[in-house]
Simulated scan of single mutants.
Amino acid sequence: MSSIVLRALAPALGLVLAGCSVPPSSEPRREARVEGRVALAGPPVGNAFLFLFAPDEAPPEQRGEPRYVAAVPEVRLAAGDARFGFSGVGPDVYRLWGFLDANGDADLTVDVLAQPGAGDWVPESSVELNVQPGQTLPVDLSLPRRVRRPLPAFQVVEQGTEGVFTLTDSSTAVASLNVRSEGFGLLRGDVPRFFVRLADTNGDGTPDDVNGDGVVDVWPQFFLRFVPRPGQAVPLDSQGRPAQVIVPLLPDLTPFLGSLQGDPGITIAAGSLQLFVVPLAQAITQEPGRGRVVTTLGAIPVGEYELWAVNDEGGVWFVPNALGRRTVEPVSGQALRFRVVHAEGTDGGTGSP
Rank of each mutant, 00 (worst) to 15 (best):
S142Y: 11
S170W: 06
G345Q: 07
P55A: 02
V179I: 15
E313T: 13
P251C: 01
V22M: 10
F195K: 02
G262E: 08
R325L: 15
G345D: 02
V93I: 09
A12T: 10
V227N: 03
W219P: 02
V174P: 02
L297N: 04
V316S: 06
F84Y: 14
L260Y: 09
D213K: 11
R290K: 14
P133S: 11
E162R: 11
L186D: 02
L275G: 05
V227P: 00
G348K: 13
A48T: 14
S171V: 07
G348Q: 11
E344Y: 14
Q239M: 10
T285D: 05
V331C: 13
V89I: 07
P73H: 12
R197T: 14
G231T: 08
G258Y: 03
D56N: 09
A18N: 05
A32Y: 07
T254K: 14
L141G: 03
L323V: 12
A153Q: 04
G163M: 13
L167T: 06
P59L: 12
P44H: 15
E128W: 13
P133D: 09
Q239P: 02
A39D: 11
Y94N: 00
V139D: 01
I266G: 08
A18M: 06
P23Y: 08
P91N: 10
L52N: 03
P279T: 08
D105L: 07
V75Y: 11
L260V: 08
L224C: 00
V75F: 13
F86W: 13
G90Q: 14
S171Y: 00
R149Q: 07
A233G: 01
R229L: 04
P288V: 13
Q115I: 10
G160E: 09
F256S: 04
V216E: 04
P248W: 05
V234M: 06
V16H: 01
V174R: 05
V5R: 10
A233I: 02
Q286E: 04
G262Q: 10
N211P: 08
